[in-house]
Amino acid sequence: MDHYDILIIGGGAAGVSAARAASGRRVLLADRGPALGGVLLQCTHRGFGNNQTGPEYMEHLLRDFPESVELALNTTVLSVSPEKTALLSGREFGRREVSFDHLILAAGCREIPAGALPIGGTRPEGVYTAGQMQALMNLRGYVPEGPAVILGSGDLGLIMAKHLAEAGLEVTLVEKKDSCGGMARNRRCLSEYPIRLLCGDTLAVLHGEKKLSGCTTAKGVYLPCKSLLIAVGLRPEQELIAHLAQPEWLTLCGNCRQVHPMVEAVVQEGKQAGAAVKKAIEVCL
């Protein structure tokens, strides 16, 4: 079994930043994707760092990436044990168990799916999470059918509203709160495109036998639509360590610790995590 000083799970902004800061120690960085970057790779809009796109910003983060960091791409971490071992499953190398002294979990977050919400009606095709649609459009060139409804006007909801409006779809945003959420720069799309915003309301019922035909809000507004995007929130991806009782060898950083609205904060947290763990190891030596 190979041994590492530090195993980092997740090669997005947090994991890459942690790996940079921890380099010098024996580090293994595992990511399920074919390339480092995580969710940034599907964020083709601008607004990262120096008004860069997600992939551009990632390129910047990866400049002079230390060669000493060992990468395990296309790799899923199946489990982590209290004995400080992890079982990895990789497309290229198969199953592999590794041991480590420290684990940095930088697995990001996942979206709350429609199924988790008390929305009634049928279960037709045409319902996606916002990030799922972002990946489908930006990485796979898919364009959904309009009109579209987006539930949730946070940053991701707004970014997708703009995306869909740019693709020529009629878009309605439904927001539970009394005013639109998200950052000012993401709200700008509301004045630039004919996006309808319904505040103080939420979705109650979906219609359509096989394919989505519309939805009705809690206040009884019927919205015909062929696509529905759920953008109601993100949950830190912590299930891999749910059975562990916060051992001292475990550090969480980035969106899997707490969802951050800005990538810069994620990078900062990753750096701090990597540096702190490296220091802890060196103090013990």
Partner: peptide
């Protein structure tokens, strides 16, 4: 599971297409 296919359905749809079954 807990993400209800939001992360894998794109790739599964691509595989279906590769094996001759329509699109998403």
């Amino acid at each position: 599971g807990r993400c209800q296919g939001s992360r894998c359905s794109g790739e599964i749809a691509r595989l279906l297409e590769e094996y001759g079954h329509g699109s998403l």
